[in-house]
Every structure is written in structure tokens, then in C-alpha cells.
């Protein structure tokens, strides 16, 4: 079974595209993109164990920090820069997104939705920080440092003059189109720099 977020991203990306996956983990997505779309991909990952896992999969990867390692690339080096499940784990979101939009013609961002209905119920009735499908951690062990809703992210893009070219939402292995900020556990956005007028 291919993870739905990976399947959606693989669906979005055109064949033979050049892809940079930021926070690529064990390289599963990059391996999938290579297999299904013949993409030339490479990843950046901070955890040395995951980097070795990537190499075992035959995925090109460089250990490093996505916060400081993007400046070596010239503008538009990649067709796609992917930030799937990693943007909410970094401190300097604006800088990284700026860099991603500079070095990639398009940027794909996948984020968990902190304001899914079940999360809202847990906060309102349970009085506790929610634990959901896309946010499975306890407050004391979560790697996430930023908590945002799909709506927050859309607003952020509007403020920052970033165009959302496409957005796809999903929950429990299915795509959602109605009331995503209530009903989707996560969203995947395709972003582009807005041309200044």
C-alpha cells in the first residue's frame, strides 16, 4: 500500500521532473517518484540513520539541515521542491519557504491540519491537546514546533504573495473536498511565486 500523501504527490508531479525533497526521511517518496515518474530526485535529511536508509533504497541524499543548506542552489534548479510533513517541524518557516520558492519552479507543501473536527472536539470537550491521525504525538514528544490549520496556511500564502496552484485534502486514506479545514486531517498544496505586478 502506498501512503496516500505520497500517491497524491506522485500524481501531481510530471514525469522526468527534477525534485528536491526536504526532510526526505527514509527516501520512500523519492524512490516512488523515481519508479513511477522517472524523476531525478535528491533529498536532504538531518537524521543519519534515515540517510543510510535512503542510501539502502538507492536514493540520492545529503545529510544536512534544510535551514542552512539551500543557498548552494541557483534559482529554479528544481522543477519541484517538496516539503511534506516537514514544514511544521522547522522554526524558520518563512525563510525556508522563500528559499524553496527560489530554487524550485514549484513547491509542494504537505501539512497536518491542527483544526480537524476531532481536534476541535478534543480541545473543547476533553480540555486537552489533541491527538489525531495526522498529529499522533503527545505534547511532550511531538517533533512539531508549529501548529496550524489548512486555513491558516492558505491565509499565510495570501499574505506572503504565494500562489496556491492546487490543493488536495485527505483523511483516513481518502481524499476530501468538502469543508477541508473541518474534515481533512492533512492537506497538500502546490505553490508558486506570484509574479509581481
Amino acid at each position: 500500500m502506498i501512503r496516500l500523501d505520497y500517491a497524491i504527490i506522485a500524481d501531481i508531479i510530471e514525469p522526468n521532473a527534477k525534485v528536491l525533497d526536504l526532510g526526505c526521511g527514509s527516501g520512500e517518496l523519492l524512490a516512488l517518484l523515481k519508479e513511477k515518474k522517472n524523476c531525478r530526485g535528491t533529498g536532504i535529511e538531518i537524521d543519519d540513520k534515515e540517510v543510510v536508509n535512503c542510501l539502502e533504497r538507492g536514493v540520492s541524499v545529503a545529510q544536512g539541515d534544510i535551514d542552512s543548506d539551500l543557498d548552494v542552489y541557483e534559482d529554479n534548479r528544481f522543477d519541484y521542491v517538496v516539503l511534506n510533513e516537514s514544514l511544521q517541524q522547522v522554526m524558520n518557516i518563512e525563510k525556508i519557504l522563500d528559499e524553496a520558492l527560489r530554487i524550485g519552479k514549484r513547491v509542494i507543501v504537505g501539512i497536518p491540519n491542527f483544526c480537524h473536527t476531532s481536534a476541535r472536539f478534543q480541545i473543547f470537550f476533553g480540555g486537552q491537546v489533541p491527538i489525531t491521525e495526522s498529529l499522533p504525538y503527545k505534547w511532550y514528544n511531538t517533533p512539531n514546533v508549529r501548529f496550524l490549520s489548512l486555513y491558516d496556511f492558505e491565509k499565510f500564502c495570501a499574505e506572503k504573495n504565494i500562489a496556491i496552484e492546487k490543493a488536495r485534502y485527505f483523511t483516513r486514506g481518502k481524499e476530501v473536498s468538502l469543508f477541508p479545514n473541518l474534515l481533512a486531517h492533512a492537506g497538500i498544496f502546490v505553490l508558486q511565486k506570484k509574479l509581481s505586478k
Binding site: D48, V51, L55, S60, V61, A62, G64, V72, Y73, R77
Partner: peptide, 21 residues
Amino acid sequence: SKEMVRALKANDVEVSYVELK
């Protein structure tokens, strides 16, 4: 090592890098 990796990346060389513990 990282300095080499960065310069290789800047040249679009396919480079993998790991700092083993």
C-alpha cells in the same frame, strides 16, 4: 566534507553525504 558536498551540489553533481556516528 560538507564543504565539498556543497560545492558539488552547486555544480549539479549527484552527491550523497552522510555523517556517521
